[in-house]
Design a protein around this nucleic acid. Sequence first.
DNA 1: AGAAAAAATGAGAACGTTCTCATTATGGCG
DNA 2: CGCCATAATGAGAACGTTCTCATTTTTTCT
Lengths: 331, 331
Amino acid sequence: MATTIIDVAKKCGYSKATVARAYSSPQSVSERAREKIYAAAKELHYAPNAIARAMVRQRTENIAFIIHEKQYPAILNPFYSPILEAAMQEATKRNYSIFITTSQDMRLPNGEMYIEKNMDGVIFAGEVAGSSIQEFQKQNIPVVLLNNCPDAEEFLSVTIDHFHGAEIAVEHLCDRGHRRIGLLAGRFSPHVFEARLQGYLSVLERHGLSGDSRFIADLDPTLEDGERVMTAMLDQPDRPTAFFCTNDTIAAGAVKAVLRSGLRVPEDIAIVGFDDSYISQVIEPELTTIRVDTQAMGRLAAQKLFDMIDGKDVTEKHVEIPTELIIRSTT
Amino acid sequence: MATTIIDVAKKCGYSKATVARAYSSPQSVSERAREKIYAAAKELHYAPNAIARAMVRQRTENIAFIIHEKQYPAILNPFYSPILEAAMQEATKRNYSIFITTSQDMRLPNGEMYIEKNMDGVIFAGEVAGSSIQEFQKQNIPVVLLNNCPDAEEFLSVTIDHFHGAEIAVEHLCDRGHRRIGLLAGRFSPHVFEARLQGYLSVLERHGLSGDSRFIADLDPTLEDGERVMTAMLDQPDRPTAFFCTNDTIAAGAVKAVLRSGLRVPEDIAIVGFDDSYISQVIEPELTTIRVDTQAMGRLAAQKLFDMIDGKDVTEKHVEIPTELIIRSTT
DNA sequence: AGAAAAAATGAGAACGTTCTCATTATGGCG
DNA sequence: CGCCATAATGAGAACGTTCTCATTTTTTCT
């Protein structure tokens, strides 16, 4: 149906080998031939067939970006948008395409599909079962983990310094003079959950403050849960004057709860979020939060993956993206 | 390198044809053979190679989802997230994978790539140059347009009833007793821009109200511009008591401007947005807006595309997604 | 048991490239 | 002009499947 290299060859009188060369290494073909070939190709609307090429080159120039997040339809997660965008840019530069899937449970749907379709590499974002990852490794497909921290040393990974991020968030609240600081901790993967919790606790301890377990809650990292839990907190005696929320979505819900109850942010209750997703600028007052350079995450993850694909040996196996406090109006 | 159908065939003593059949039409293979084959395959970690299959079947089981939006990194656009998610679900059901690209100018980067990679079909979201689309049609690749309204009848499309959406938004403001109603119109594609503007004007006219051109602005559909333009509006004499913003992002910016100037929403200034993106629930007060069933958009676009791919003839060429007023707290 | 029908299997071309190796054309130089 | 180096081209295998058609095996029926 579609026109092939053979059609072009017939049309211009050269062999298919020469036509192929005119595309894959133009300098090895005489100028005269090149012109004739391109002219014929144009006339026939010829486009090289990447599938056939992939077949012989054993390389598809496709990578997969798989997002696993328990809580929401993952792509809705504003945290991943800029990461994906950055990874996409890296890919486009190299003429690679990106496949994307999301899933909510830890098994990836049609997992085999990604192997069968011969992805040159895979970026796993979020929490994934190690077994899924090993499937890829068995097939010698390079994998980069993003925002996922398995114990295994053998994987390349790009992660966030959750512990330090939580520390500077809580530290900031202490700086502002707060002595009673609550925590709204989203139920992310155990590792992330734990790291942020520990960061929070370590600052309290350093300042000789005791965490009151009534004001440390774990919840779904959703707007609704943020609002619901915060509303409950506000009713309690001796409530904190500040809260650290482990992502911006929770924080936005918390802000809503405070404002609705007639209190003010930050005068009555100060709030710090995490991620610096664009939610933080959408709400009023704008959210003080911990910025994670998500663009760098996406870029680095992609670069690492391409390094592996190209057979370079990657010296730095684990990159930890630093965090930064962004002071806005909720503290 | 990777194990192939031939390795499996050797191992289990059947021919490669039979092994192939065990996968593509298991019922045509004796139970005994099937078991032996699967056992051998498992032992060798065999996974069928979709590239080779695509080669002979002339079908990749891949589709592309291309988002073009002038203003922002498109994937950040909260409007497209649920659409993409829904399309992805449809694709996964059919064992298809989704390629995704975004671009900000109207030429798609590596445009040829999508043709070369033999996508079975393409969904174009946002504003795209007709020429890009025709490239695909020349190659007989089915295309569905999403939220893009070219004059051409020949394309399948899923669009929004922009005119009616704008009407019910403004009508709602009139119901609430507003007589001076401003417009913050995002510079989307000309068609979208115009349809929403006309919807706004038609309601004013119906109610015998005159649109004051000082309070009709066109702007970039961003948070920043929404805030900037609204701030300017507030300073003017005889300012409106209500504004219709043609998307939620603008509306969020507008809400911020009002709150910052010390006025109240909705008491002093009422605001209606458009899209019912999740921004509308993140902000406080929550945004009254026009809901577009984005999930249906994504689903229908994908279904239409698959119908074309499967050679069914699609009766309904243009689907217009209805709009619905969602009353929250900004009016 | 034997023939006919049905089910299961095998052989080999085809899909559209790339790539290696062999062959032919071109150019430089004594 | 003839020789050699080099550049340009061509022939054909290979990539890993599917699919058609022919062949073999199994089942069914008298």
